[in-house]
Design a protein around this nucleic acid. Structure first.
Ligand SMILES: [Zn+2]
Ligand SMILES: [Zn+2]
Ligand SMILES: [Zn+2]
Ligand SMILES: [Zn+2]
Lengths: 142, 142
DNA sequence: TGTATAAATAGAAATGATTTCTATTTAATA
DNA sequence: TATTAAATAGAAATCATTTCTATTTATACA
Protein backbone atom coordinates (compact mmCIF):
# COMPACT_ATOMS: atom_id res chain seq x y z
CA UNK A 1 0.00 0.00 0.00
CA UNK A 2 1.51 3.29 -1.10
CA UNK A 3 1.65 6.52 0.86
CA UNK A 4 -1.43 8.00 -0.73
CA UNK A 5 -3.54 4.92 -0.07
CA UNK A 6 -2.37 5.07 3.50
CA UNK A 7 -3.28 8.74 3.79
CA UNK A 8 -6.70 8.16 2.28
CA UNK A 9 -7.40 5.29 4.67
CA UNK A 10 -6.24 7.45 7.49
CA UNK A 11 -8.92 9.99 6.80
CA UNK A 12 -11.62 7.40 6.19
CA UNK A 13 -11.72 7.89 2.46
CA UNK A 14 -11.94 4.86 0.22
CA UNK A 15 -8.99 4.25 -2.05
CA UNK A 16 -10.54 4.74 -5.46
CA UNK A 17 -8.75 4.90 -8.82
CA UNK A 18 -10.03 8.44 -9.36
CA UNK A 19 -8.67 9.69 -6.08
CA UNK A 20 -5.30 8.16 -6.77
CA UNK A 21 -5.31 9.60 -10.29
CA UNK A 22 -6.04 13.11 -9.03
CA UNK A 23 -3.13 12.81 -6.64
CA UNK A 24 -0.94 11.42 -9.39
CA UNK A 25 -1.82 14.29 -11.69
CA UNK A 26 -1.03 16.84 -9.02
CA UNK A 27 2.21 15.03 -8.17
CA UNK A 28 3.49 15.59 -11.69
CA UNK A 29 2.96 19.34 -11.50
CA UNK A 30 5.04 22.19 -10.15
CA UNK A 31 2.16 24.60 -10.69
CA UNK A 32 -1.29 24.94 -9.18
CA UNK A 33 -4.22 23.66 -11.22
CA UNK A 34 -7.90 24.49 -11.43
CA UNK A 35 -10.55 21.78 -10.96
CA UNK A 36 -11.43 22.06 -14.63
CA UNK A 37 -7.81 21.62 -15.68
CA UNK A 38 -7.53 18.54 -13.50
CA UNK A 39 -10.77 17.28 -15.01
CA UNK A 40 -9.22 17.71 -18.45
CA UNK A 41 -6.31 15.51 -17.46
CA UNK A 42 -8.63 12.99 -15.83
CA UNK A 43 -10.57 12.64 -19.04
CA UNK A 44 -7.46 11.26 -20.69
CA UNK A 45 -7.33 8.54 -18.07
CA UNK A 46 -10.99 7.64 -17.62
CA UNK A 47 -13.78 7.17 -20.12
CA UNK A 48 -16.28 8.36 -17.54
CA UNK A 49 -15.34 11.10 -15.15
CA UNK A 50 -17.59 13.83 -13.86
CA UNK A 51 -16.49 17.33 -12.96
CA UNK A 52 -18.37 17.17 -9.64
CA UNK A 53 -16.28 14.14 -8.72
CA UNK A 54 -13.16 16.20 -9.27
CA UNK A 55 -14.50 19.06 -7.18
CA UNK A 56 -15.62 16.76 -4.39
CA UNK A 57 -12.35 14.90 -4.21
CA UNK A 58 -10.23 18.00 -4.32
CA UNK A 59 -12.18 19.41 -1.42
CA UNK A 60 -11.88 16.19 0.57
CA UNK A 61 -8.16 15.90 -0.09
CA UNK A 62 -7.71 19.49 0.88
CA UNK A 63 -9.61 19.01 4.11
CA UNK A 64 -7.28 16.16 4.92
CA UNK A 65 -4.29 18.38 4.19
CA UNK A 66 -3.07 16.02 1.50
CA UNK A 67 -3.24 18.84 -0.99
CA UNK A 68 -3.32 22.58 -0.47
CA UNK A 69 -5.69 25.20 -1.68
CA UNK A 70 -4.38 28.38 -3.26
CA UNK A 71 -5.74 31.80 -2.27
CA UNK A 72 -5.82 33.37 -5.68
CA UNK A 73 -6.66 37.04 -6.22
CA UNK A 74 -9.19 35.98 -8.85
CA UNK A 75 -10.97 34.00 -6.13
CA UNK A 76 -11.17 30.85 -8.20
CA UNK A 77 -10.20 27.44 -6.86
CA UNK A 78 -6.72 26.10 -7.45
CA UNK A 79 -4.98 23.18 -5.84
CA UNK A 80 -1.42 22.11 -5.38
CA UNK A 81 0.22 18.99 -4.03
CA UNK A 82 3.25 19.80 -1.99
CA UNK A 83 5.99 17.19 -1.65
CA UNK A 84 7.11 18.80 1.58
CA UNK A 85 5.09 17.13 4.33
CA UNK A 86 5.88 19.38 7.27
CA UNK A 87 3.89 22.50 8.01
CA UNK A 88 4.96 25.45 5.89
CA UNK A 89 3.59 28.02 3.45
CA UNK A 90 3.83 28.99 -0.17
CA UNK A 91 5.03 31.56 -2.58
CA UNK A 92 2.89 31.44 -5.70
CA UNK A 93 3.73 32.97 -9.02
CA UNK A 94 0.78 34.93 -10.38
CA UNK A 95 2.15 34.64 -13.88
CA UNK A 96 3.26 31.03 -14.47
CA UNK A 97 1.55 29.52 -11.39
CA UNK A 98 4.70 27.98 -10.00
CA UNK A 99 4.55 27.19 -6.30
CA UNK A 100 7.57 27.38 -4.03
CA UNK A 101 7.93 26.70 -0.35
CA UNK A 102 8.33 29.44 2.20
CA UNK A 103 10.13 27.94 5.15
CA UNK A 104 8.63 30.34 7.53
CA UNK A 105 5.60 30.20 9.74
CA UNK A 106 4.38 32.72 12.20
CA UNK A 107 2.02 30.29 13.89
CA UNK A 108 3.81 30.16 17.22
CA UNK A 109 4.04 33.90 17.68
CA UNK A 110 0.52 34.36 16.40
CA UNK A 111 -0.96 31.69 18.64
CA UNK A 112 0.73 33.35 21.58
CA UNK A 113 -0.59 36.78 20.67
CA UNK A 114 -4.12 35.49 20.11
CA UNK A 115 -4.05 33.54 23.35
CA UNK A 116 -2.64 36.24 25.59
CA UNK A 117 -3.91 39.46 24.07
CA UNK A 118 -7.17 38.46 22.43
CA UNK A 119 -8.02 35.45 24.62
CA UNK A 120 -9.31 33.78 21.48
CA UNK A 121 -8.95 30.34 19.98
CA UNK A 122 -7.06 29.83 16.72
CA UNK A 123 -8.66 27.42 14.29
CA UNK A 124 -6.49 28.00 11.24
CA UNK A 125 -4.11 30.46 9.72
CA UNK A 126 -3.40 31.57 6.20
CA UNK A 127 0.01 32.70 5.08
CA UNK A 128 0.67 33.06 1.41
CA UNK A 129 2.98 35.21 -0.65
CA UNK A 130 1.93 36.22 -4.13
CA UNK A 131 4.36 37.46 -6.69
CA UNK A 132 6.49 36.64 -9.66
CA UNK A 133 8.94 33.77 -9.60
CA UNK A 134 12.55 34.15 -10.63
CA UNK A 135 11.85 33.38 -14.28
CA UNK A 136 8.76 35.53 -14.56
CA UNK A 137 10.26 38.52 -12.76
CA UNK A 138 13.16 38.46 -15.21
CA UNK A 139 10.75 38.44 -18.12
CA UNK A 140 8.85 41.44 -16.78
CA UNK A 141 12.12 43.35 -16.39
CA UNK A 142 12.67 43.38 -20.12
CA UNK B 1 -12.53 67.81 3.63
CA UNK B 2 -12.54 64.76 5.85
CA UNK B 3 -10.04 61.93 5.82
CA UNK B 4 -12.10 59.68 3.62
CA UNK B 5 -12.63 62.36 1.01
CA UNK B 6 -8.92 62.93 1.04
CA UNK B 7 -8.22 59.21 0.59
CA UNK B 8 -10.69 58.97 -2.25
CA UNK B 9 -9.16 61.94 -4.04
CA UNK B 10 -5.78 60.43 -3.49
CA UNK B 11 -6.71 57.37 -5.47
CA UNK B 12 -8.49 59.32 -8.19
CA UNK B 13 -11.96 58.31 -7.08
CA UNK B 14 -14.68 60.92 -7.02
CA UNK B 15 -16.13 61.74 -3.63
CA UNK B 16 -19.68 60.50 -4.00
CA UNK B 17 -22.33 60.23 -1.28
CA UNK B 18 -22.53 56.49 -1.83
CA UNK B 19 -18.82 55.96 -1.37
CA UNK B 20 -18.85 57.98 1.82
CA UNK B 21 -21.90 56.11 3.06
CA UNK B 22 -20.27 52.73 2.48
CA UNK B 23 -17.25 53.89 4.46
CA UNK B 24 -19.51 55.26 7.18
CA UNK B 25 -21.40 52.00 7.43
CA UNK B 26 -18.18 50.02 7.71
CA UNK B 27 -16.84 52.51 10.26
CA UNK B 28 -19.70 51.70 12.59
CA UNK B 29 -18.97 47.99 12.57
CA UNK B 30 -16.60 45.77 14.50
CA UNK B 31 -17.47 42.83 12.29
CA UNK B 32 -16.92 42.07 8.64
CA UNK B 33 -19.90 42.49 6.33
CA UNK B 34 -20.96 40.98 3.02
CA UNK B 35 -21.74 43.20 0.01
CA UNK B 36 -25.39 42.27 0.32
CA UNK B 37 -25.47 43.22 3.99
CA UNK B 38 -23.89 46.56 3.18
CA UNK B 39 -26.45 46.98 0.41
CA UNK B 40 -29.19 46.38 2.97
CA UNK B 41 -27.85 49.20 5.12
CA UNK B 42 -27.40 51.44 2.08
CA UNK B 43 -31.06 50.99 1.16
CA UNK B 44 -32.00 52.68 4.43
CA UNK B 45 -29.99 55.72 3.38
CA UNK B 46 -30.74 55.96 -0.34
CA UNK B 47 -33.94 55.56 -2.27
CA UNK B 48 -31.99 54.30 -5.23
CA UNK B 49 -28.97 52.13 -4.71
CA UNK B 50 -27.88 49.21 -6.83
CA UNK B 51 -26.08 46.14 -5.59
CA UNK B 52 -23.49 46.39 -8.41
CA UNK B 53 -22.61 49.85 -7.14
CA UNK B 54 -21.88 48.37 -3.74
CA UNK B 55 -19.77 45.59 -5.23
CA UNK B 56 -17.85 48.01 -7.44
CA UNK B 57 -17.13 50.47 -4.69
CA UNK B 58 -16.09 47.83 -2.21
CA UNK B 59 -13.62 46.47 -4.73
CA UNK B 60 -12.25 49.92 -5.49
CA UNK B 61 -11.90 50.83 -1.83
CA UNK B 62 -10.20 47.54 -1.19
CA UNK B 63 -7.76 48.08 -4.05
CA UNK B 64 -6.88 51.42 -2.48
CA UNK B 65 -6.34 49.72 0.87
CA UNK B 66 -8.97 51.87 2.50
CA UNK B 67 -10.85 48.75 3.50
CA UNK B 68 -9.69 45.17 3.78
CA UNK B 69 -11.01 42.02 2.26
CA UNK B 70 -11.56 38.96 4.42
CA UNK B 71 -10.39 35.51 3.31
CA UNK B 72 -13.34 33.50 4.49
CA UNK B 73 -13.39 29.69 4.35
CA UNK B 74 -16.76 29.91 2.62
CA UNK B 75 -15.06 31.88 -0.14
CA UNK B 76 -17.65 34.62 -0.14
CA UNK B 77 -16.75 38.30 -0.12
CA UNK B 78 -16.58 40.17 3.16
CA UNK B 79 -15.12 43.56 3.92
CA UNK B 80 -13.89 45.32 6.99
CA UNK B 81 -12.74 48.83 7.70
CA UNK B 82 -9.83 48.90 10.08
CA UNK B 83 -9.25 52.00 12.18
CA UNK B 84 -5.60 51.06 12.50
CA UNK B 85 -3.85 52.67 9.54
CA UNK B 86 -0.45 51.01 9.73
CA UNK B 87 0.28 47.71 8.05
CA UNK B 88 -0.89 44.77 10.11
CA UNK B 89 -3.08 41.68 9.92
CA UNK B 90 -6.26 40.29 11.35
CA UNK B 91 -7.75 37.69 13.55
CA UNK B 92 -11.31 37.00 12.44
CA UNK B 93 -13.94 35.19 14.45
CA UNK B 94 -15.66 32.57 12.33
CA UNK B 95 -18.66 32.63 14.63
CA UNK B 96 -19.55 36.27 15.36
CA UNK B 97 -17.39 37.84 12.59
CA UNK B 98 -15.51 40.11 14.96
CA UNK B 99 -12.19 41.35 13.59
CA UNK B 100 -9.20 42.03 15.81
CA UNK B 101 -5.75 43.27 14.96
CA UNK B 102 -2.73 41.04 14.97
CA UNK B 103 0.25 43.26 15.62
CA UNK B 104 2.54 40.98 13.81
CA UNK B 105 3.74 40.89 10.28
CA UNK B 106 6.14 38.54 8.67
CA UNK B 107 6.63 40.68 5.59
CA UNK B 108 10.25 41.58 6.25
CA UNK B 109 11.41 38.02 6.83
CA UNK B 110 9.33 36.78 3.94
CA UNK B 111 10.57 39.39 1.52
CA UNK B 112 14.08 38.48 2.47
CA UNK B 113 13.51 34.77 1.96
CA UNK B 114 11.80 35.30 -1.38
CA UNK B 115 14.52 37.64 -2.54
CA UNK B 116 17.53 35.59 -1.49
CA UNK B 117 16.32 32.00 -1.80
CA UNK B 118 13.71 32.16 -4.55
CA UNK B 119 14.99 35.23 -6.40
CA UNK B 120 11.36 36.18 -6.91
CA UNK B 121 9.42 39.40 -6.61
CA UNK B 122 6.76 39.80 -3.92
CA UNK B 123 3.56 41.50 -5.05
CA UNK B 124 1.40 40.89 -1.99
CA UNK B 125 1.09 38.71 1.03
CA UNK B 126 -1.83 37.31 2.94
CA UNK B 127 -1.70 36.68 6.64
CA UNK B 128 -4.92 35.96 8.45
CA UNK B 129 -5.82 34.03 11.53
CA UNK B 130 -9.22 32.37 11.73
CA UNK B 131 -10.73 31.28 14.98
CA UNK B 132 -13.13 32.06 17.76
CA UNK B 133 -12.93 35.32 19.64
CA UNK B 134 -12.85 35.50 23.42
CA UNK B 135 -16.64 35.63 23.73
CA UNK B 136 -17.35 32.91 21.19
CA UNK B 137 -14.71 30.52 22.49
CA UNK B 138 -16.25 30.81 25.96
CA UNK B 139 -19.66 29.96 24.53
CA UNK B 140 -18.34 26.89 22.76
CA UNK B 141 -16.77 25.68 26.00
CA UNK B 142 -20.16 25.20 27.60
C1' DT C 1 -14.26 -16.21 -2.55
C1' DG C 2 -19.27 -14.32 -2.18
C1' DT C 3 -22.34 -10.79 0.05
C1' DA C 4 -23.87 -6.76 2.42
C1' DT C 5 -23.49 -1.96 2.93
C1' DA C 6 -22.03 2.48 3.04
C1' DA C 7 -19.39 5.40 0.22
C1' DA C 8 -18.30 7.09 -4.29
C1' DT C 9 -19.62 8.34 -8.82
C1' DA C 10 -21.95 10.03 -13.39
C1' DG C 11 -24.66 13.02 -15.46
C1' DA C 12 -28.02 16.29 -15.54
C1' DA C 13 -29.65 20.20 -13.45
C1' DA C 14 -29.76 24.05 -10.34
C1' DT C 15 -27.67 27.67 -7.86
C1' DG C 16 -26.61 32.26 -6.67
C1' DA C 17 -22.90 35.27 -5.83
C1' DT C 18 -20.74 38.25 -8.76
C1' DT C 19 -20.17 40.66 -13.12
C1' DT C 20 -21.51 42.86 -17.32
C1' DC C 21 -24.07 46.03 -20.01
C1' DT C 22 -26.17 50.47 -21.35
C1' DA C 23 -28.69 54.48 -20.67
C1' DT C 24 -28.79 58.09 -17.35
C1' DT C 25 -26.94 60.95 -13.71
C1' DT C 26 -23.40 63.33 -11.24
C1' DA C 27 -18.86 65.24 -9.44
C1' DA C 28 -15.15 67.88 -10.74
C1' DT C 29 -12.99 71.37 -13.28
C1' DA C 30 -12.43 75.67 -15.45
C1' DT D 1 -22.70 77.47 -15.86
C1' DA D 2 -20.97 74.27 -19.34
C1' DT D 3 -18.14 70.39 -20.24
C1' DT D 4 -16.67 65.82 -19.60
C1' DA D 5 -15.23 61.76 -17.68
C1' DA D 6 -16.61 58.99 -13.95
C1' DA D 7 -20.28 56.94 -11.34
C1' DT D 8 -24.69 54.85 -11.03
C1' DA D 9 -29.34 52.15 -11.61
C1' DG D 10 -31.51 48.44 -13.08
C1' DA D 11 -31.90 44.60 -15.80
C1' DA D 12 -29.68 40.75 -17.41
C1' DA D 13 -26.06 37.46 -17.94
C1' DT D 14 -22.39 34.64 -16.35
C1' DC D 15 -20.31 30.61 -14.99
C1' DA D 16 -17.77 28.41 -11.36
C1' DT D 17 -19.46 25.58 -8.07
C1' DT D 18 -22.95 22.72 -5.83
C1' DT D 19 -26.89 19.76 -5.51
C1' DC D 20 -29.55 15.81 -6.68
C1' DT D 21 -30.57 10.91 -7.68
C1' DA D 22 -29.88 6.64 -9.74
C1' DT D 23 -26.10 3.56 -10.33
C1' DT D 24 -21.63 1.63 -9.33
C1' DT D 25 -17.86 0.30 -6.39
C1' DA D 26 -14.62 -0.38 -2.38
C1' DT D 27 -14.45 -2.61 1.75
C1' DA D 28 -15.46 -5.54 5.59
C1' DC D 29 -16.55 -9.87 6.98
C1' DA D 30 -18.96 -14.41 6.79
ZN1 LIG E 1 6.53 32.06 -12.38
ZN1 LIG F 1 1.84 28.17 9.30
ZN1 LIG G 1 -16.72 35.77 18.02
ZN1 LIG H 1 -6.76 45.93 11.60
Amino acid sequence: MDNFSFSLRNMNLKVTPKRLAILDILMEETVYLSPEEIWGKMKRRFRKIGLPTVYRNLEELSEGNIISKVNHPNRKLYYYLCKNQSHHHHFICLSCRKVEDINFCAAKKINKEVKTKLKGKVISHILQVNGLCKTCSKKSDI
